[in-house]
Each structure stands twice: as C-alpha cells, then as structure tokens.
C-alpha cells in the first residue's frame, strides 16, 4: 500500500477532512465554477483581487479527496500572491502533477500532490480548482469543464 500513501499523504487527507477557506467570499471580485463530469466533482472559487494582488481565495463544492485537498492547498498558497505569480504557480503545479517537473521549494505544500502523476485519470481532479481560478481571473462566465 506504499503507492497509496504516496498519493494520499497525511497533508492531503487532512485538507480533505478539514478544507481551508471552505466558504463563500462576499467581498470577491472574481468567481467561477468548475465541473469534472468524470467524477461529478463541482467547485466554485471566489477570488478577491486588489491592485493585481490576490487578497483572498475561498472555495465551495464537493469532490474527491484529491480535488478537495488540491483546492484547499491552493487557497492557502495563492493568498498574497500577485495575479502573475498565481498564473506562474499554476503552470509549475500543472507540470508537477503531469510528471513534467520535480517538486521545487517555490511550490511549498503543493509538493504533496506530486503523487498524482502516477494516476493520469486523477490529474483532472487535482487541477479542477486551479482551472476555475484561472477562469475567474480571466472573467470567464462559462463553467470550466475538465474532461
């Protein structure tokens, strides 16, 4: 079961059970919905941007442990970053979970999701909330669908 522990690390199980910033954000300036039809995962992200800096990110929805933990970790990582930094981080994160790069110190706790690269069908779960944030920042009104 070692492989499983690589995927479902303690940090992931913890964020799944007690997701951080799991609420609506009244003061949000951007929001978007994400949907993964494969698993039925649904997420809504709320972002407050002030002068190109992300002041707060929250999310709501339901999903598997990977998508919930990824969304939760994302909210903790993006707060305080500039929009440009957030987009760069998403690129790095995407490369990590698709196996195109190794974890780096810049990624912080996001590195715990590196195990996803061994489960190609779960990449969509891990990136759902990130896609939704990107859609929110680009003021996309259509829900993001990862399938």
């Amino acid at each position: 079961m070692d492989n499983l522990r690589d995927l479902y690390q303690e940090v992931i199980l913890d964020h799944n059970k007690r997701p951080r910033n799991f609420r609506m954000l009244e003061s949000c300036t951007h929001r978007a919905d994400g949907h993964n039809p494969l698993c039925g995962d649904r997420v809504t992200v709320f972002v407050e941007v002030d002068d190109a800096v992300i002041k707060a990110v929250t999310f709501q929805g339901q999903g598997c442990a990977i998508s919930t933990a990824s969304a939760s970790l994302m909210t903790t990582m993006l707060t305080g970053k500039t929009v440009a930094e957030a987009e760069r981080l998403f690129g790095q994160f995407y490369d990590l979970v698709t196996g195109h790069s190794q974890p780096s110190s810049a990624m912080g706790k996001l590195a715990v999701l590196a195990g996803v690269r061994d489960y190609p069908s779960r990449v969509k779960c891990a990136t759902l909330a990130w896609h939704a944030v990107q859609a929110a920042l680009h003021n996309q009104t259509e829900p993001v669908v990862t399938e």
């Binding site: 079961m1 479902y8 494969l38 698993c39 995962d41 598997c64 489960y119 779960r122 779960c125």
Partner: peptide
C-alpha cells in the same frame, strides 16, 4: 468520494466503477 474508493481498491487489484 467514490473516486477515492476506486483508486484505493485498484491498489488491491480490485476493479470497480466509480461515477
């Protein structure tokens, strides 16, 4: 979530459907 169930089962060689 059923998807997590299916992934854990798979590691035991058990193939089921989640969705």
């Amino acid at each position: 979530h059923p998807h997590d169930i299916a992934t854990v089962f798979d590691q035991s060689g058990v193939a089921i459907r989640a969705g």
